[in-house]
Design a protein around this nucleic acid. Sequence first.
RNA 1: CGGGGUGUAGCAUAAUGGUAGUGUACGCGGUUUGGGACCGUGAGGUCCGGGUUCGAUUCCCGGCUCCCCGACCA
Length: 421
Amino acid sequence: MRQSQLFTKTRKEAPADEAAKNAQLLIRAGFVYKEMAGVYAYLPLGLLVLEKVKQIVREEMNAIGGQELIMTSLQRKDLWERTDRWDDKQVDVWFKSELKAGGEVGFGWSHEEPIAEMMKNYITSYKDLPIYVYQFQTKLRNELRAKSGVMRGREFVMKDMYSFAVGEDDHTAFYNATIAAYQRVYERLGLGEDTFVTFASGGSFTQFSHEFQTICEAGEDSIYINRDKNIALNAEVYNPETLAKLEVTEAELTKVTTAEVGNIFNFGRQKASDVGLSYKSDSGEDVPVWMGSYGIGVTRLIGVIAEKFSDAKGLVWPESIAPFLVHLVALNTDDSAVRDYAEGIYSELQKRGVAVLFDDRDLRAGEKFADSDLIGLPYRVVLSKKTKESGKFEMIERRSGEVRHLTEVELYADFDNDPES
RNA sequence: CGGGGUGUAGCAUAAUGGUAGUGUACGCGGUUUGGGACCGUGAGGUCCGGGUUCGAUUCCCGGCUCCCCGACCA
């Protein structure tokens, strides 16, 4: 991609109506546009990141047997009335509207009820199970107070997966497989070290649910952790009983501020029972399905990553989700020989399949470097009259600032070996 | 939803009961060219609705907006 053609350009100053670092940086660097509080559009750079995060999640969900589908944004009132979750007193984040033809619809803030209802069409026998399905959906929630940039929005992308199983063993096996899959997702996003499977207040069926909490100052949650024992519990369940159950003492735990990046619920057979989703067992009985639901906040993750991986100069994307691997910055482009040389390297990198953003704009060096720092691609390769004459490129790693001087051959070898490119 | 604040040009900010200023970004001309350079020049603005007033961007009332704290987050 040529930066001269790229829609959007960067901004020097942070917007006055954003206090959150993630929103300030993402807006300044041109990744997102704020439509209103808690509602952000994803621009070309932001969309590349969003799709890369989705792809990682997709691969890990597929790996444990998940099948992707997509449910609807408009939802039926009657489904939610059945489980007493239509009333605003029960669920205070509903967006609702009326059909011209009469009747009310809700905008999906969750898809538990609709997907369970849909499954009645497809689950009739134990032979139909198990089923593991997931989607990436834009959830709509009428938050009383959107905040923290993209971390708590009224409109956000979530991956939600639902499992439908015959017996407790299969159900539990999948639940545990999902925990492992989630950990691989956070690992691949570079958050593995700081993300904890956390005991949290339970759903309707179990004493605890499991949250995935990432240490992040901008987060809203407090959890207690012990890295050695690999134990974490949410402050909401921090009490003597829980500590005893988890076999930790107060003294062994450290309190940290975190953002919830995933949450999984074990519904047991309760949910299916509530909505009337059952299958015929091999002995001919009608049995409620074992269900679980599993969420990952995709756009929130982008916010968390922007918060954690950034410095005074801008964003610092992990390779796994950077919009491009390399920022090819050409200086002295008024010199046609240098320009030709830079164009040559750009097309060679493209030919080799390296994801590269080529700053071919006719600007001063300072401006280009400032933009490059702000956008935060993992590697910057500088081309100039100087590097052309020396035959060596300057390659700077964004994260560490480490500078290497490479020959053209060494440069290509470096990216050829990089699995991400 | 309770409390506090906010709203001026694309963006960031200043000032004011009587012609609204600066920076940046933008257009044009020129000098520059390895860390957001400079000179000249040009275009561009007071959230919405009422009220007070000869006159309101400024004061008053109402609304909306955005930010922060709290509550909420199944």
